[in-house]
Amino acid sequence: MSPVFQGILTIIIGVGGCVGYFYFSNMLLDKVIFPARGPNTGRNINRANQVRPWLFLFPAMFALGLYLAYPVVGSFWRSLFDRSGANFIGLGNYVDLFSEGTFRTAVMNNLLWVLFVPAMATFLGLLVAQLTDRLSWGNIAKSLIFMPMAISFVGASLIWKFVYSANPDIGIINSIRDAMGLAVLDPLQVRFWNNFFLMFILVWIQTGFAMVILSAALRGIPEETIEAAIIDGANAFQVFFKIKVPQIMGTIVVVWTTITILVLKVFDIVYTMTGGNFGTHILPSYMMTYMFRDDGRATAVAFVIMLLVLPVMIWNIRQARNEMR
């Protein structure tokens, strides 16, 4: 069966199944289990309404539980076993990992990524949002800076190969070096700094995201506050840093944490650009070297990533609870 046909069939079965589930389960509830007639009409309607939310929620809860909640436990459990999955070795995988040089490099690099990418993307996004706000062609500029959002990490990596390539006829950086009479070098093999070259690709992708949200936040600032500051003699910089930024601090933090979480998931850039060579591994790419080879190690690395995400997760949940109050 061709995958196209299979795909169409799945759409029909999947969508039809979902619609059918919601429709018939509601019918069943209202007409058969708690019918709204007979002696207990009132009580039945109330009961049906108590059950109904769970009918609506069930498929989503089931999928969320199976695909996201269960793996947290499942992965941790698996990480306590050796490669074959038969022998319980406690924290053996973790001990082995921490004694490995590549793993420590990956952790250090990942910390660099988590610090640099969100900071840089948020800063550039804020800068662009503020600058384009006053321009007549600001929307076009924003749209172009936002564009990399649509590009896959693999595509973006290839695009940046045309910047970083060691061949001066392909890579812009080396052609400039060549024109200036400097020796050709491969930026991706320059230890330590090559991490930043890779990070910049993600910054390039994420700046547009930060810009869109921060630009909306900047527009939401009450004008009176800015007018008052200008009347009091504040210059453009003071207005920006002392009036505007404090008022959108909440949004800045949201943007920052969103990008942080994304950084911890991205393995594509390192995988396509260097394959983790030259000291550029990060945890997600390092995990993929064990995927399909040693599930115990792979899940252990994944769980280390989870531990890094945990603070953000707790902060997010508290934030959401505060809002609901």
Partner: peptide, 20 residues
């Protein structure tokens, strides 16, 4: 449940690969 959804929003994909 809403808090749980917000929490699951940030669970790294990598965790799900092996068990699933």
């Amino acid at each position: 449940l809403i808090a749980a959804v917000v929490g699951l929003l940030v669970v790294p994909l990598q965790l799900a690969l092996v068990p699933l």
